[in-house]
């Protein structure tokens, strides 16, 4: 009785070993004949979805240097610097340290002007650590149209002041005339 059960176990082991091996080989063999599902990366690329969280980009014209994104950042990797000329901004820097950034997208949502976004670029390679401090600004200093606006504003202001001055002078003159009387 014991011997027969031992023999049965022995034969079951042999049978199971062979059978499951063949089952496995059938599965792998089937895949061997199928077309692979991978893509040849640098030549072919998979589409990147719109919501992909890659390297940031900034719509600089909209940005008002309010620091909301920098405050929202859990690791304080956003730094920005701009000189304020009345309503206009003279941009010095808007840097993101990609050594720290963890691409959590928390900086995107608090933005009141909806001007910082995450792009689809993901490969950021460099031999030098300092190059990972990435400046998002597309231009330094003032925007061309901002310059125009400022000039216009200045001219307007100058005109206004000139008018004011003229008015004042006229007033002064009339008053002086009155005094002179």
């Amino acid at each position: 009785m014991l011997a027969s059960s031992a023999v049965r176990e022995y034969l079951t082991n042999v049978w199971d070993g062979v059978r499951t091996t063949l089952v496995g080989m059938r599965i792998t063999g089937r895949y061997l004949l199928q077309k692979p599902i991978t893509v040849q990366y640098p030549d072919e690329r998979l589409p990147i979805p719109d919501r992909y969280r890659g390297i940031h980009y900034l719509e600089q014209e909209k940005c008002i240097n309010c620091l909301a994104c920098a405050r929202a950042c859990p690791i304080d990797c956003i730094e920005m610097d701009a000189i304020r000329h009345g309503k206009e901004l003279e941009w010095v820097s808007f840097t993101l340290d990609y050594q720290k950034c963890m691409f959590c997208e928390l900086c995107v949502y608090p933005c009141p002007k909806d001007c910082i976004h995450m792009g689809t670029e993901f490969a950021y390679v460099s031999f030098d650590r300092s190059e990972f401090v990435h400046d998002l600004l597309s231009f330094k200093g003032m925007a061309p149209d901002a310059k125009v606006r400022m000039r216009e504003a200045k001219e307007k202001k100058a005109l206004k002041e000139a008018a004011k001055l003229a008015a004042k002078q006229a007033k002064d003159e009339s008053e002086g005339n009155g005094d002179g009387d």
């Binding site: 792998t28 895949y31 061997l32 199928q34 692979p36 991978t38």
Partner: peptide, 13 residues
Amino acid sequence: KVSGHIQCRYGPM
């Protein structure tokens, strides 16, 4: 190549 194609990939290309 064999391992690659069994595993649904290409292997060296």
